[in-house]
Design a protein around this nucleic acid. Structure first.
Length: 573
RNA sequence: CGGGGCGUGGCGCAGUCCGGUAGCGCACCUGGUUUGGGACCAGGGAGUCGGAGGUUCGAAUCCUCUCGCCCCGACCA
C-alpha cells in the first residue's frame, strides 16, 4: 500500500479531548476518529490493527476447540424476559421497538441469545462439552464513556459460553479458557495479571479478570508479592487479626456533638483515631433498609455487602430514609438502638473497645460503646475494602495495590441461564439435566488500546510485530523520476515477497516522513534514499530499539524475513 | 444523575470581561525554490462563531432557554 493512495491523517497536535496516551496516539496516528461521545470510527490503519488482534483471538479460540458463531445484535425482549434480565439489566441496555411495537435490546452481552440458540441445537450429553463463541459488537449505554475506545458505548467483544455436564467439566472448560487467554494476550505482546474477581450476587462460583497494569486503569488490584495472591479490590479479602488485651470496658456515655457528623469531624472533636468509631451507614437493599457497621478508619466495600445480602440492588439510603430509620439526621446513626433494622457488622467491629458511635439522635454520640454489652453483633461479615498494606488473606504479608485495565474476564456462571431458560440435555440414563455454564469475554478494542498503553515512547506508538498494521514501512526519499521509480521497485519487490508493507511515497520532506513513521510505529523502517541511489545501501531501522543497519537490495528480503521472525520470537518467548 | 469546564474554517486555539460585523498556527489548493529529521516564498479556497429566542442602530461578545462535548464520582470488556 502506498500512503499517497491511503487515508492517513496524522496530527502534529494532540486532540483536545484526549487525556490518556493510547487515545491521544491512536487519534494522532490516524487509527481512529471520534464520531460522537463513546463511538469511534476505525480508519483503515486502525482497522488493520483491530483485525490483527481479532485474528489472534480467533486462532486461539479455534485452537482451544471453541466454535465460532455470529449472533444477531438485536435480541428480542422475549429472550431477556425468560432469564429475568429484561427487568434487572437497567438503563445500561439499549432498548428499541420495531414498527409493530415489538421490543428488542441492542445486545450488551449474549448469555440469553447463546443459551437459547444452543438449546435448540443440542439434546444429548454426547454433544457436550461445547464452547460457543463469537466476535461481535456489544452495546452498552455507559454512564460515562471515556479514554477513547477504552470505554465506549459500542465495542467489539469476543464472548464465549461453555456448556458442560458437571462442575468438573466446567472447571476443565474454565481452565482451557484461562490458558487460551494467557496465550492470546501473550501473542498480542500484552502483559496481563489474572486476578480473582467478584462473582456478584447472582451466582457463579469462580471468576478471574485479566488486567493490564496501568496508571490509567480504572480497577484497583491487591497483590501479595510474597505468595502471589492477586484480586480485584471489589473482591479482595484481607486477614483480620483478633485484638488481644482489649482495654477495660468503660461505661457508655451520651455526649453532645453539635454538627459533628463525619469521621473527620469526629476525630477532631474526640481527639482520637478513626478506628475507634463505629461507622454506621444506612443502605437500601432491594427495598429493605440495612445498617452496615464498620470501623471508622475503613471504607465499606459495597460489592461485598451486596453479595452478603444477596441483593440485586444496593444503594445508599436517601437522607429522608435515614431519618425515618434512625430518628436522626444523617451523621448520627449507630447500632445502639431499640429500632428494628437489619444490621450487618464487619468482622472487625467486635474487637472495638470503648468505641464511639452515633446515638440515633440529633447532635449526639455515645462513647464507651462495647460490642456484646451495648449492642449485639447479630450478623457478621467481611464488608470492608482491602487497602494497600493490609495483610494478605493467604500468607499475612502486607499487600500492595496496582491499577489495572480489565481486558478479559472468565467466569463460572453455574446453572443460572440453563435453568432459567430450560436448557436441558439427556444424560446417560435418559434423564433431562441442565448443563452447567461458563462465560468468557475479551474486549477487543480495549485490548488494542491497552497494547498502545504498553508499547509507546515519546515519539509515538511502537507496535509489536504480531499486531502491527504493516510489518515494514518504506520511506522513500526520492527527487528525480528515476529515483521515484527506484523506490517503487524496492516496494514492489517487498510487497511481492508477501511482506506486509506500507510505502511512504508522499512528496513531503524527509523529516516529516520520519516523524510520521515514528508516530504510527511500524516495526521495521526501510529508508530508500541517496545511500541507495549512490551506493546500493538500504537502511533498516527498528522502531522498537532504534538500531539501524545497512543492507544491499540483494540481501533485503532475507534480512527482513529474519527480522520479522526474530521479532515474533521475542513476543512468543 | 451530581459537581467542574468547553463549544469560533478539517485540527489546535485567540477574540467574549469592556458590543462596531472574525483572526492566528497547522492542514488544504496553485506556482516556484527546496528536501536524510516535522522546509521556504508568493498567491488562494474554506467559518450560519453549537442551536433558538431576546436586548440593541449594531451581538462571537450581554440576557433566557436549549443541544453537544470533555473532566471528577456510582456501572463494565
Amino acid at each position: 500500500m502506498k500512503i499517497s493512495r491511503y487515508i492517513l491523517p496524522t496530527l502534529k497536535e494532540d486532540p483536545s479531548d484526549a487525556t490518556v496516551t493510547s487515545h491521544r496516539l491512536m487519534v494522532r496516528a490516524g487509527l481512529i476518529r471520534k464520531e460522537s461521545a463513546g463511538m469511534y470510527i476505525y480508519l483503515p490503519l486502525g482497522l488493520k490493527v483491530l483485525q490483527k488482534v481479532t485474528a489472534i483471538v480467533r486462532e486461539e479460540m479455534n485452537r482451544s476447540g471453541a466454535l465460532e458463531f455470529l449472533m444477531p445484535e438485536m435480541t428480542s425482549a422475549e429472550l431477556w424476559k425468560e432469564s429475568g434480565r429484561w427487568n434487572t439489566m437497567g438503563p445500561e441496555m439499549f432498548r428499541i421497538k420495531d414498527r409493530n411495537s415489538m421490543e428488542y435490546a441492542l445486545a450488551p452481552t449474549h448469555e440469553e441469545a447463546f443459551t437459547s440458540a444452543i438449546r435448540s441445537l443440542i439434546s444429548s450429553y454426547r454433544d457436550l462439552p461445547l464452547n460457543a463463541y463469537q466476535i461481535n459488537t456489544k452495546f452498552r449505554d455507559e454512564i460515562r464513556p471515556r479514554f477513547g475506545v477504552m470505554r465506549s458505548k459500542e465495542f467489539i467483544m469476543k464472548d464465549a459460553y461453555s456448556f458442560d455436564m458437571d462442575e468438573q467439566g466446567l472447571d476443565e472448560s474454565y481452565q482451557t479458557m484461562r490458558k487460551t487467554y494467557r496465550t492470546i494476550f501473550k501473542r498480542c505482546s500484552l502483559e496481563t495479571i489474572p486476578v480473582e474477581a467478584d462473582t456478584g450476587a447472582m451466582g457463579g462460583s469462580q471468576s478471574e479478570e485479566f488486567m493490564v497494569a496501568s496508571e490509567i486503569g480504572e480497577e484497583v488490584l491487591l497483590i501479595c508479592e510474597s505468595c502471589g495472591y492477586k484480586a480485584n479490590q471489589e473482591k479482595a479479602e484481607f486477614r483480620h487479626t483478633a485484638v488481644e488485651n482489649k482495654e477495660p470496658e468503660e461505661p457508655i456515655l451520651e455526649v453532645d456533638t453539635p454538627d459533628v457528623r463525619t469521621i473527620d469531624d469526629l476525630t477532631a472533636f474526640f481527639k482520637c483515631g478513626a478506628e475507634r468509631f463505629l461507622k454506621s451507614i444506612i443502605y437500601t437493599a432491594d427495598g429493605e433498609h440495612v445498617m452496615a457497621v464498620v470501623p471508622g478508619n475503613r471504607e465499606i466495600n459495597e460489592h461485598k455487602l451486596k453479595n452478603h445480602l444477596r441483593a440485586a440492588e444496593l444503594e445508599l439510603a436517601s437522607d429522608s430514609a435515614v431519618e425515618d430509620v434512625t430518628g436522626a439526621p444523617v451523621g448520627f446513626a449507630g447500632p445502639v438502638t431499640e429500632k428494628k433494622i437489619r444490621m450487618v457488622f464487619d468482622i472487625s467491629v467486635k474487637d472495638i473497645a470503648n468505641g464511639i458511635t452515633g446515638a440515633n439522635k440529633r447532635d449526639t454520640h455515645f462513647t464507651g460503646v462495647n460490642p456484646g454489652r451495648d449492642f449485639t453483633v447479630t450478623e457478621e461479615a467481611d464488608i470492608t475494602i482491602a487497602e494497600e498494606g493490609d495483610p494478605c488473606p493467604q500468607c499475612g504479608k502486607a499487600m500492595i495495590t496496582r491499577k489495572g485495565i480489565e481486558v478479559g474476564h472468565i467466569f463460572k456462571l453455574g446453572y443460572k441461564y440453563s435453568k432459567s431458560m430450560s436448557l436441558t440435555v439427556l444424560d446417560k440414563n435418559g434423564k433431562a439435566v441442565n448443563p452447567i455454564m461458563g462465560c468468557y469475554g475479551i474486549g477487543v478494542n480495549r485490548t488494542m488500546a491497552a497494547i498502545v498503553e504498553q508499547h509507546h515512547d515519546e515519539k509515538g506508538i511502537v507496535w509489536p510485530m504480531s499486531i502491527a498494521p504493516f510489518q515494514v514501512l518504506i520511506t522513500g526519499i526520492a527527487k528525480s523520476e528515476e529515483e521515484i521509480a527506484s523506490v517503487d521497485e524496492i516496494y514492489s519487490m517487498v510487497r511481492d515477497a508477501g511482506i506486509e508493507v506500507l510505502c511512504d511515497d508522499r512528496k513531503v520532506s524527509p523529516g516529516f516522513k520520519f516523524a510520521d513513521a515514528e508516530l504510527i510505529g511500524i516495526p521495521v523502517r526501510i529508508t530508500v534514499g541517496k545511500n541507495y541511489f549512490n551506493n546500493n545501501e538500504l537502511e533498516i531501522k527498528m522502531r522498537r530499539t532504534g538500531v539501524s543497519e545497512n543492507v544491499t537490495k540483494e540481501n533485503l528480503l532475507s534480512r527482513i524475513r529474519e527480522i520479522i521472525a526474530e521479532e515474533m520470537d521475542i513476543i512468543d518467548n
